[in-house]
Simulated assay, not measured.
Amino acid sequence: MYVDDVLAGTHDLTTAKSARDELISALKPPGCALRKWTSNDPHILNGLPQDHLLQTEILNLSGPENTKTLGIGWNSKKDSFFVLVSTMEKKPAHTKREVLSAIAKLFDPAGWLSPIIITAKIIMQQIWLDKTDWDESLKPLTLLRWNSFVKDYENINKIEIPRWTHFNPTATIEFHGFSDASEKAYAATLYIRILVGHKIWTTLLVSKTRVAPIKTVSLPRLELCGAVLLANLVNSTLSQLHLTQYKNYFWTDSTIVLAWLNKPPCSWSTFVSHRVAAINEKVGVDNFNHVESQDNPADLASRGCTPTDLLNCNLWWHGPQWLQHEKEHYSTYLQHHRGIQTR
């Protein structure tokens, strides 16, 4: 439940109808009649009073009055999520207050738009580094970056994220996490890989980004921070899914990070030691493997890209192409890239 909205799903129509009826019965005694019903299957709505149905095809998770704040919606006909954003004005001058206010309205709880949002985070950090006062105009170079960000921003409205990952209780499940870092930021992404017979689906579940510290940190250390971010993301996400049978694979394009993870934490300096220990505590180090940079979707989130580029980016939404291969090709890739660790 989100405030007074109920969101639920089942694996078959019979169970869904039963859950619907039990929910109605449970809330009937105190006089709570559920309204604005909608579903991706019209059979769920059969028998419900017309005035209890949502009149449009869209259910805003936050309620109609908060759409501009939360900006996440669900199209029940397409069974996909979408993000609504308001127009950002491109002007010859913007104050720090205006820009930070606009950035604060960006809402992306699952990190689906991380490659876009990280660009705004980096600009925000630069504004502070410029020591611009609240009502002072941005520095010319920072203003140029902001206007470039605003120019393509509305295309976020074209992005649709499928709700269903093709999961079912009989499927073979794998989770693949990727981490990466640039000089400006580090990131982690987590995908679910579903295998049913000879069919394979991979879907982005969640991602996280962090802007690099102002104090200069070497790129290998930022890559390690990305691996820690991934470990925390995996630990927090999987603990909520209540699954028992699945495999984990974690990927980084940094061979230095893999070398650090290959030895006990006490082998390294304090900075490295603490982070290797944190990764080991959260997810262990045995499932970390090497991935080429061009196949690492977290690279997009650490460097940033435009909404137009993200719109049809298969690497971001579904992971690297080899992740979608059938068993023979996929197993060969795993064996080859596990060998890089030289454990």
Rank of each mutant, 00 (worst) to 15 (best):
D5P: 07
A8K: 05
A8G: 12
H11E: 13
D12Y: 10
T14W: 00
K17R: 12
D21G: 03
E22I: 00
L27P: 12
K28A: 12
K28I: 01
C32S: 13
T38A: 08
N40E: 00
D41S: 04
H43G: 07
H43K: 11
H43I: 03
G47T: 01
Q50E: 10
H52Y: 10
L53I: 00
I58R: 06
L59P: 06
S62Y: 05
N66E: 08
T67S: 14
G73Q: 03
G73K: 01
V83I: 05
L84A: 13
L84C: 10
S86V: 03
K90S: 15
P92A: 13
H94E: 06
K96P: 05
V99F: 05
I103D: 03
K105L: 13
F107Y: 12
D108Y: 00
P109W: 02
W112P: 00
P115G: 05
I116H: 05
I122N: 03
I122E: 02
W128N: 03
K131V: 08
T132W: 03
W134Q: 05
W134I: 03
D135F: 05
E136K: 10
E136M: 04
K139M: 11
K139C: 13
P140V: 03
T142N: 08
R145V: 11
V150I: 09
E154H: 12
N155A: 13
I159Q: 00
I161V: 04
N168L: 10
N168M: 07
A171S: 14
E174Q: 12
H176T: 00
S182V: 04
E183C: 12
E183S: 14
Y186L: 07
A188C: 04
R193T: 08
G197Q: 05
H198S: 14
K199I: 08
K199D: 14
I200N: 03
I200F: 08
S207F: 01
T209K: 01
T216R: 12
V217R: 04
S218F: 06
P220V: 02
P220G: 06
C225K: 09
G226K: 02
L229T: 02
L230F: 06
A231N: 04
N235V: 14
Q245F: 13
Y246W: 12
Y249D: 07
D253T: 02
D253M: 04
S254D: 02
T255L: 13
L258I: 05
W260A: 02
L261H: 05
K263N: 11
P264L: 07
S269I: 01
T270W: 10
V272P: 02
S273K: 06
R275Y: 09
V276K: 10
A278K: 13
A278N: 09
E281F: 13
E281P: 12
K282C: 13
V285H: 11
N287I: 09
N287L: 14
P297Y: 01
C305T: 12
P307F: 06
L310R: 07
C313A: 09
L315N: 01
H318A: 07
P320Y: 06
Q321V: 13
E326D: 12
H329V: 07
Y330N: 10
S331E: 14
Y333E: 11
L334E: 06
L334D: 07
R338M: 15
R343H: 15
